[in-house]
């Protein structure tokens, strides 16, 4: 399926979940948050949340900030 991840088009497997996406994009981080179409996907539901064609996803991780 075609989705948008952090503003860029991406191709994901048909049955991909949010957990799969996080493992692929943010494997080195243990504090990650995901937004899907403008809503937070709680960590507890990453494994059950299947992505759908056209989803807009933001995968976020910590950085320095004031």
């Amino acid at each position: 399926m075609q989705v948008t991840v952090n503003g860029a088009p991406a191709e994901l497997a048909q049955d991909a979940t949010v957990a799969d996406l996080v493992a692929e994009r943010a494997g080195g981080h243990d504090r990650v948050a995901v937004a899907r179409n403008g809503d937070v996907v709680p960590r507890s539901s990453w494994g059950q949340t299947r992505l759908t064609d056209g989803d807009a996803l933001e995968v976020l991780a910590p950085t320095a900030g004031g």
Binding site: N6, A26, L60, A61, P62, T63, G65
Partner: peptide, 14 residues
């Protein structure tokens, strides 16, 4: 601390 897109964020070491 802040949150940014993962590719622009610091590594876990911060």
């Amino acid at each position: 601390v802040a949150l940014r897109r993962v590719e622009a964020s610091a590594t876990g070491s911060m």
